[in-house]
Write a protein that binds this DNA or RNA. Structure first.
Length: 545
DNA sequence: CGTGTTTGACCCGCGC
DNA sequence: GCGCGGGTCAAACACG
């Protein structure tokens, strides 16, 4: 009877679609066991037919069996009904999505208030600032309709996360960002406000007067370019003022009209540092190996957005870290014994076009700040600067990029920038984040689970670079390390560079489990972030380097 | 021959 | 208006 009750219990579970078949199986198993039980009872009856008392028991058991059978039938029907409801809801959901898309494409009027926009911005990655601009200015465009669509979807992801600038951000350009200014003067970053208006790709043309954000990745890399998993074609090279090293211009060639471009330049002061700046949203499915950088830059972009919300420092808590760092990916492809830092800064030459710098070159010593977790933003947000230079140190290279790929049903691969992230996932993110923050044991469990997954799958990365397996293993190690010791965040085990080039694609070898993806994209950042520290002051130091 | 790179010319925005 | 600097174009070239 226990088994029957067990199956009934399982049948009552309301879970994912995958559960339904299992539930039905349980129901069937329960019935079989029920029959076996009845046969045994019948045989026992034949053996001892003289015992009337037992007969009574048997009768009662039979009656009970009948009831249980009815219950089983009822539960089976419930399961079937639930399955139908699920399918119906699923279709309805996608139908609504489709309707919403059509509706928004017709109604591109920027009726949404700025508060709403800001809210949406904070939840979405990979947005083009131009679209935000359109909201503000009330211009109509097909892009804005797509933007709305993206907003519905909740998340877009570009290799170089273009994203909307918040109104606040655009209306209050900071002329005071000295750090980025220095970089610009040195020609180390990609300042190009001018490029914005020169981008005449089909998509960009639709975007009109584009003010877009970029993500600049500083990494120690011996190879000419970072192997970010995408396919690039060099279309130009320039000697930038202040930097003897030529600046190379690359264009994504995965599909002919992909608007994504990147600039690659060596740091003038440290030739080992490669500065790669991404711009644009892929309008095609990304190779799995490319999702790493996509996530990284998206996360960086989201960080920039968080920086734009400086007036709301309370955002920068667990919630913000979970939401805005969603999918954050700091890959071990670069210099590894380092911490990862973000510089969130506007470009003085282009106040409306902020650039976030993901600095993967900082020395470990600079990261050993005693700054408590979740305090990274404190100094930067108290800065008078509109776009204060902000750094984030991350103790371990996370491999959450696949989280996008996996947790969202490969929507990244299928939809590219139009990746979907629903509110449930956001809620899940917050919930998990809170749980992680509040419960160290939970962190431990998550860390152990993921590290074991990563380590277990590292060898499967046939399509990735040589360091992938090692990266995965290191990741797992460092996840644990970060869990165990918040300060020992930068270790030699993070070093993936090993002189063989910079390839984040090791992520591609990870498990395709959606659970892993969720953990990678939502949980891991929180895990690591919680053990991370921020040395805001180091930021300036690194920027000057 | 197809694909990718090189490189000088050109365009454009910005500052003076 | 002019010059400067950054970004892009496209012909020439290299390579497999």
């Amino acid at each position: 009877m226990d088994s029957i009750g067990g199956s009934a219990t399982v049948s009552r579970q309301i879970c994912h679609e995958d559960c339904f078949s299992g539930q039905e199986a349980n129901v069937k198993v329960g019935e079989e066991q029920l029959q076996d039980h009845g046969e045994k009872l019948t045989s026992s009856k034949s053996e001892d037919s003289s015992n009337n008392k037992e007969e009574g028991v048997i009768e009662s058991v039979k009656a009970e069996m009948g009831q249980v059978r009815e219950e089983n039938e009822r539960l089976k029907k419930m399961v079937q009904q639930m399955e139908k409801d699920y399918q119906s809801l699923k279709f309805h959901f996608f139908d609504l999505l489709g309707q919403e898309t059509c509706k928004k494409s017709e109604d591109s009027t920027p009726s949404s208030d700025e508060t709403e926009e800001s809210e949406l911005v904070s939840l979405c990655l990979g947005r083009t600032p131009s679209e935000s601009k359109k909201y503000e200015k009330g211009s109509n465009s097909s892009r804005s309709s797509r933007e709305n669509e993206d907003l519905e979807a909740g998340l877009t992801l570009g290799l170089d996360s273009k994203f909307q600038m918040s109104t606040e951000l655009e209306s209050n350009p900071s002329p005071e960002n000295s750090l980025d200014a220095k970089e610009d003067e040195a020609g180390e970053t990609w300042p190009p406000s001018k490029i914005l208006k020169r981008n005449i790709d089909d998509e960009d043309a639709k975007q009109g007067d584009v003010k877009r954000a970029r993500v600049c990745v500083r990494a120690r890399c011996e190879t000419p370019t970072i192997n970010d998993g995408c396919q690039w074609r060099k279309y130009g090279q320039k000697i930038a003022k202040g930097n003897p090293c030529p600046r190379a211009y690359y264009r994504c060639t995965v599909i002919p009209k992909c608007p994504v471009r990147k600039q690659v330049q060596r740091c003038a002061e440290d030739m080992s540092i490669l500065i790669t700046t991404y711009e644009g949203i892929h309008n095609h499915p990304l190779p799995v190996s490319a999702t790493a950088m996509a996530s990284t830059t998206s996360a960086a972009a989201s960080m920039l957005l968080s920086g734009s919300s400086a007036s709301q420092p309370t955002l920068i808590g667990s919630h913000a870290s979970a939401t805005q760092l969603n999918g954050l990916s700091f890959n071990n492809l670069y210099d590894s014994s380092t911490t990862k830092q973000f510089y969130i800064a506007n470009n003085p030459s282009s106040p409306l076009c902020p650039t976030i710098t993901l600095d993967l070159t900082a020395s470990p010593s600079t990261a050993s700040s005693a700054t408590p977790p979740f305090n990274w933003f404190s100094s930067s947000f108290t800065s008078p600067s509109r776009f204060p230079s902000t750094s984030l140190n991350f103790p371990s290279p996370a491999v959450w990029s696949n989280g996008y790929q996996n947790s969202y049903g490969s929507s990244l691969s299928n939809l590219g920038p139009y990746m979907e992230k629903n509110h449930q996932q956001q809620a899940l993110t917050e919930t998990l984040t809170k749980a992680i923050i509040s419960d160290p044991s939970f962190r431990t469990v998550i860390a152990a689970a993921i590290s074991s997954m990563v380590a277990g799958n590292g060898s499967a990365s046939a399509s990735s670079s040589q360091g992938n397996q090692r990266a995965a293993e290191n990741f797992g190690q460092n996840l644990r390390l970060g869990e165990a010791n918040n300060e020992a965040v930068s270790t030699s085990s993070l070093n993936l560079q090993n002189g063989k080039g910079c390839a984040p694609s090791y992520i591609s070898g990870l498990s395709s489990s959606s659970q892993i993806g969720l953990l990678q994209s939502h949980v891991l950042p929180s895990c690591v972030l919680n053990s991370a520290s921020l040395a805001a002051n180091n930021n300036n130091k690194d920027q000057k380097n």
